[in-house]
């Protein structure tokens, strides 16, 4: 499994790709997979992170998602955002096609 978090990471969330269409999804507090980062369960502290990842691994998710992993999240002012460029792009869509991906869905909905 890829490493997308660091040892010193404080806040973390779990992401994966949905089996049916590869859509980026996030594990929510009630163990669902949501399409938006805003719905992700975000944990504080390394042990809580491990526990979060453990919730993503049960075999029943094999039918829904691929390759779940932990990634680092930063808190700025009052809201959270992914720490790496990679996860920012996964949460939004290609930066060269703003008409595609989650960023476009968000625009359509608003």
């Amino acid at each position: 499994m890829a490493q997308h978090s660091s040892k010193g990471a404080r806040f973390q969330a779990v992401t994966a790709n949905r089996l049916s269409d590869g859509e980026v999804v996030y594990l929510t507090p009630d163990n669902q997979w949501a399409e938006t980062f805003a719905a992700a369960d975000i944990t504080d502290g390394p042990e809580a992170g491990d526990a979060l990842l453990a919730r993503a691994l049960p075999a029943d998710f094999e039918l829904h998602v691929l390759e779940p992993y932990l990634f680092e999240v930063l808190q700025d002012a009052s809201h959270f955002k992914p720490a790496s460029v990679r996860e920012i792009i996964r949460a939004a869509g290609p930066t060269v096609r703003l008409d595609l991906g989650k960023q476009a869905d968000a625009k359509r909905e608003s």
């Binding site: 590869g22 980026v24 390759e67 996964r90 869509g93």
Partner: peptide, 16 residues
């Protein structure tokens, strides 16, 4: 996974 790869199907960041 190896079967889909043999048929040219990769997983990227946002989709297959």
């Amino acid at each position: 996974k190896p079967l889909r790869l043999m048929n040219g199907v990769y997983l990227q960041l946002h989709a297959y």
